[in-house]
Design a protein around this nucleic acid. Structure first.
Lengths: 235, 235, 235, 235
DNA sequence: TATGAATGAGCCTTCATTCAT
DNA sequence: GATGAATGAAGGCTCATTCAT
C-alpha cells in the first residue's frame, strides 16, 4: 500500500504499473499477483487504505466548541494543500477522475467525501444549536464550502497557481465570518485544536517536477492588479 | 477534432487511442499520423480547439449591467454542468488531471482558466464601479467563486451527485446576494442576457454508462436529512 | 543468440526483426523483450557473442614456427570464405556496413579486427625474429594482407564470384613466398596446424537463395580469358 | 538521382526513404512514384546512374605508358578514399551489402567491378607486352590488388581507421615495385596522368558525424608500435 | 504530370496476467 | 508463499504504395 502510494505520487496514476509498484517493494511483480487478483484489485485495496482512518481522526475535534471545530476543519483543509506535495494532490485528482469509470473507486470516494461532508454538516448543525452560527441550511453550506475547497485545490494544482488556494482561503474566512458566525462569535485565530494530519502521507520526497512556481504567478498578479487596480489589497 | 471529442467523452482520456479516434472517423489510423506528428500533437491541437472561442462568446455579455452579466455567468456555469453530458465533464477533468504532467495542457488550461477568471474579475470590477456591488477585492472573490464552481462540478461528476451542484448553486446565489450585491441591487431572476453555449459540444449521445443516478442520491438525501433533520428544506 | 544468427543469415540484417528472431525460437516476441531491453540491446549482445572466442582459438597456433602459423592463418581465412555459407558472409558484411552508424557495432568490430590484426602482426614479428621472414614492417604488411583478405571476401560474396577469392588466395601465397618468407623458408603445403573453426557457425542449412553461381562465372572466364589470352592458366 | 545520392550519403541506405529523397527535390513524394514504379525501381535507376561513366573516364589513361596508367589507377583509388566523405563510402558499402539480396544491384555492381577490373587487367597486360612489367597472370594480380583496395577501404570506413588505408597504400606501392615492375621500370612519383574524378560526387557537405578520428588511431599506433618495436618506420 | 491525402502492413515496445518451479 | 520467465493483446509510429483531383 505504501509502495503504491509512493509510486502513485512519483509517477502519477496513468503511469502506474504493477512493475513500478513492485519496484518499491521487497516483492517481485509475480508476488503482487499472488496477493491481488489484478491491478484493479490492488488499487481497490489501496483506495480503501488511502481513504480510511478519516473518521477516527475527525473525532479529535469532538467536544470542542463549533467555531473551534470549524476553524480546525478549514485550516486543516488548506494546510494539506500546502503540506502534501504536488505529487500527492495530482495523483489524488487522477484517482478522482477515474471514478466515473470505476464503480468501486466512486463508491470509496463517495464514502470518503461523505465522511468529510458529514463532519462539516455536523459542525454547522452543532454551531446552529449552540447559537454560535446563524441559522442556515448546513447541507447547502457544507456542499458550497466543500466544493470551494475542492475547487481551490484543483485549480491550484492543475494550473500550478498557489495564489488560487490562498485567495480561496481568504474568501472562505470572510464568508464564514459574515455568513456563518453570529456577530458575537469570532473566528479563532489561535486554534484550540488542530485536525490531526495523516502521518502515512509524510513527505516521500518523491514528487515529480513541480510544474507551478512563483515566477509564473507574476503574470497572474499583473493581470489581476490591472483589473482591480483601484482596490487596496489584491492579494 | 470532433471525433477526438467524441472518443474522449465516450472512452475517457486514459482509454483514448489513435485507433479509437480513427474509428469515429472515415479515416484510418495511418491518416491520423499523416496529419499529426504524434498522438500528443493531435491532443495539443485538440486542446486548443477545445478551449478556443471562449473569449468571443464572452463578449456577448458586454454592455449589460454588471449584475446581469454576473447572473449570466453563474447560470451559464451551472447550466453547463447540467447540459453537457457526464462524459464531457469527466473527460475534461481527466484532461485537467493530466496538466501537471503535460506542459502544454497546463498552459492551455491556464489560458482558458485565466480567460474565465478575467471575465469574472471584470464583471466584479465593473459592478463596484457602478455601485451595483459592494466594495471588495474582485480577485479574491473571483478565485473563491471559480473554485466553488469547479469544485461543485468535480464533486458532482466524480461522485455522481447532482445535488452537490444544486446546493452549490443555491449557496452561490445567496453568497452573491448578501456579499457581492449592494442592498439596492437584486439578482435578476429573468435574465436579460445568457452566455451563449458552445454548440460544438451539443450532446453527442455517446456517453458511456452514466454511473451516477437518482437512486443513489437517495442515500445522500437520507444521510443529509439525518444530519440536518431539524431543517426544513435540505435539498 | 543462435536464433538471431540464423535469422541474420537467412534474412539479412535489414530484414531482421524481433518477430523473425522469435520465430526461430520457442519463445514469443514478448519474451525477447523480457530478456533484452530493446532490439538494439539484443543485437549488442549478439555482436558480442558473435565476435567472442577468437582469442581463445588463436592460441591454438602458439608454439608453432612462424611460417606454420602464417600458413594456418591464411588457410583459415580463405577456408572460412568457402566453409561458411553465403548467408553468413553476407550478414557479416551488413553488420560491418552498419558500424559507421552504430557506435557499439563499430567498437566490437574494432576489437575483433584488432585481435585478428594483432595475431597477424605477432606472427610476422615472430618470423622476423626467427629469421624465417625477411625484415619488413609487420604492421604495414598486416594491414595490407588483412585488407586483401577482407576485400577478396567482400568481392566474392557481393558479386557472387568465387574466383575472386581463389585468385586472391593464389596471389597471397605468391606475395608471401616472395615478399615475406626468406629464400630458405618454404610455405608449408602440408599444414602442421590448422586454425580451429568456430563450430557455432556450422552450416545452418538456412541460407537464402545463393545468387551467384557457376554459370555466371562463365562470363568472367570469357572476359578474363580475353584480356589475358596469352597466359596459360588464368583461373 | 542527385537527391538520392545526397540522401544516401546523409542518412545511409537503411534510413533511405522515399520521403527523404523527395525532401531533397523540388518534387513531392507522390511524383516520385509517378516516375518510378517503386523505390526499388528508383534505386535501380540510381545504381545505374551511380556506376555509369567509369569507362568514359578510364579512357583518359589511354595512350600513356603502362606504369603511368597503373600509378594513376592506384593513386585514384586511394585518393577517393580520402576525397569522398565518410557518408559516401559508408553508403556505397551498404549498397554493396544489399547486392546478395538484390539481383539487379548485384548485376550492376558486377558490371562496375568488371569495368574496374578490366581496366586493371588491361594495364597489366599492356605492361607485360611493353616489358615494363614482369611476366605474370594479370587476372590474378588484378583480383588481388582490387581486393586489397576494396578491403582497405572497407576496413578504413567501417572501423574508422584511416591508417589502414595508408598502410595498404604503402604496401601496395612496394608490392607493385617489387612484384609487378621490372627492375628498370620505376613507379612514377610525378604522375603524368591522373584518373579524372567523378565530379558528380563533389562534397555534398552532408555527411553524417564522422565516427573515426585521429585520437582513436593512437591506440592502434601504440599497439602496433609495441608489436613491431624493433622496426624503424612503423607508419 | 504532379500532388496531397489516405491506407494497411508491419515494426518496436509495454504491460497485465499466467504459470511452472 | 514467492519468483522469474513467458505471453498476447494492444499501442504508437513508419513507410511504400495508391489514388482522386
Amino acid at each position: 500500500m505504501q509502495a503504491t502510494y509512493e509510486a502513485l505520487c512519483a509517477d502519477g496514476y496513468s503511469d502506474l504499473t504493477a512493475q513500478r509498484i513492485a519496484d518499491r517493494t521487497e516483492m517481485s511483480k509475480g508476488s503482487l499477483f499472488y496477493h491481488y487478483d489484478s491491478v484493479d484489485d490492488l488499487l481497490a485495496s489501496f483506495i480503501e487504505y488511502l481513504l480510511a482512518g478519516y473518521g477516527h481522526r475527525a473525532e479529535a475535534l469532538d467536544g470542542f466548541p463549533p467555531e473551534e471545530r470549524l476553524a480546525a476543519y478549514v485550516e486543516w483543509w488548506f494546510d494539506i494543500s500546502t503540506a502534501e506535495g504536488t505529487g500527492h494532490h495530482t495523483a489524488m485528482l487522477e484517482l478522482r477522475a477515474q471514478a466515473p469509470y470505476n464503480e468501486l473507486f466512486q463508491e470509496k470516494l463517495r464514502e470518503s467525501d461523505e465522511a468529510l461532508r458529514d463532519t462539516l454538516v455536523d459542525i454547522l448543525t452543532a454551531g446552529i444549536e449552540t447559537g454560535a452560527f446563524v441559522d442556515h441550511d448546513p447541507a447547502i453550506a457544507a456542499d458550497f464550502l466543500l466544493g470551494a475547497f475542492v475547487g481551490a485545490r484543483v485549480r491550484h494544482f492543475t494550473l500550478g497557481r498557489a495564489t488560487y488556494s490562498e485567495h480561496a482561503y481568504e474568501a472562505t474566512r470572510e464568508y464564514i465570518e459574515t455568513e456563518i458566525l453570529t456577530p458575537e462569535t469570532t473566528y479563532p485565530d489561535e486554534p484550540a485544536v488542530t485536525f490531526p494530519p495523516d502521518e502515512r502521507f509524510a513527505d516521500t520526497g518523491d514528487e515529480h517536477a513541480v510544474p507551478s512556481g512563483a515566477e509564473q504567478d507574476d503574470r497572474t498578479e499583473a493581470a489581476t492588479a490591472d483589473a482591480a487596480s483601484e482596490h487596496e489589497d489584491t492579494e
